[in-house]
Design a binder for these strands. Structure first.
Lengths: 219, 219
DNA sequence: CCGGATCCCCAGGGATACTG
DNA sequence: CAGTATCCCTGGGGATCCGG
């Protein structure tokens, strides 16, 4: 990218990560740890392979990622965030939190991935009853699934399926994530086709940190 | 900007503010409050006026800024951040903090502005002796000047000159900001031409929140 | 002088095909 | 699987010009 030519830390940061796709590549590496080229391509629907290739070289040159040869069985290259790349997490989180406000409207053709289903609750919800016993919530949306684990006051989440979840949420990405992020209430989510089965009371334990509700019912 | 087409809050945030210059425009409005077109153009050295015009329209359409007619004496338009625009501050701060690591190297042709001199200490330093009496520090770099005020445990800063500062730092932007941000120590800053006059002990009161020092002397 | 609009040119990005 | 090569086209840089 062409430099902004400004002695300002924001401008210099954008000199490095301001290019198109760059921050999304960092997102993928942050959510998935070490990735092959194809994993990244898969997690970044819409990117052209030449662009991905170019960006990876730029990111390596800037010191944000490292290339390493994978162990023998799979002779391929793995990309991983360096310390400087990992240090972007707070900025990415802040941007993601701000971006929640744009998740309310539907865009049917948007791509969707399980890892994006997982990071939202992990980053933006807290356990309102930290001393309650552990619980497992299964999320399913658009064919992608993720698991939320409530344990010891922590909210963790990762892509995949749970064997015996206490609660299952299944619906459109907008319904599932909108509910978890506090953008819509349960009634609205149900109207959007959300299916809730299991211990519904667990929903009140999952507290979104954002207060982005449209001005409707105020407590 | 072309949408990324991903149902992910980071991607949707970048759909709105991922374009070139957009976040820097937000920076200016965040640092300077209401701005005229010309103020923005001045605070964004290098931007083409048509680009600025285009971005302002896009930002208004996205609901991040508002246009308002200024009071009669100056019949002009003022641009101001909306609530959604102001909500970007945490993300911008996080990005600015991350970007500090790229401020160490010199690029002589970089533009520099007083408001950038001011935001760094205001955002990224704390008063190590919050109960000590108030103090005023004058910063001068590259013809731009800003004032830091230590008072009641708060560190505030704004462009301009103080009438009777307790301490004056004068030098290259890299020397002044590098010292304040903890990127370089006083000795290095002095070698870079930093002039320090007044109550030097105030420097130890100004504590950078970042620990970006190159691996040298560890306490 | 302020607040843009217009024009031309080139670099950066998108899509697809192809190769080691 | 992991990229590279190619082509096309849009978006941005730079200068100049116009209306109020």
């Amino acid at each position: 990218m062409r430099s902004y030519g400004q002695y300002c830390s924001i401008a210099r940061a954008l000199d490095v990560v301001g290019d198109r796709w760059t921050l999304l590549i960092v997102r993928e590496l942050l959510l998935q740890d070490a990735c092959r080229f194809t994993d990244l391509k898969n997690g970044l629907p819409g990117i052209a392979p030449n662009l991905l290739s170019t960006r990876l070289k730029e990111l390596e040159a800037a010191g944000l990622i490292t290339r390493e040869d994978a162990p023998p069985p799979v002779a391929t290259v793995l990309y991983r965030l360096s310390e400087a790349g990992l240090a972007l997490e707070p900025a990415l989180k802040a941007l993601a939190l701000w971006g929640l406000r744009f998740m309310a409207d539907e865009r049917p053709d948007d791509a969707f991935r399980a890892s994006w289903l997982a990071y939202a609750p992990a980053w933006f919800t807290t356990d309102a009853e930290p001393d309650a016993p552990p619980a497992v919530i299964q999320l399913v949306a658009s064919g992608e699934s993720a698991v939320i684990e409530l344990r010891g006051g922590e909210v963790q989440a990762h892509p995949g399926r749970a064997t015996d979840p206490d609660l299952v949420l299944d619906g459109s990405p907008r319904a599932v994530l909108g509910l978890l992020n506090g953008l819509i209430d349960l009634e609205t989510a149900s109207r959007l086709g959300l299916s809730v089965s299991g211990r519904r009371e667990l929903l009140s334990r999952l507290r979104p940190i954002a207060q982005n509700q449209p001005p409707a019912s105020d407590a």
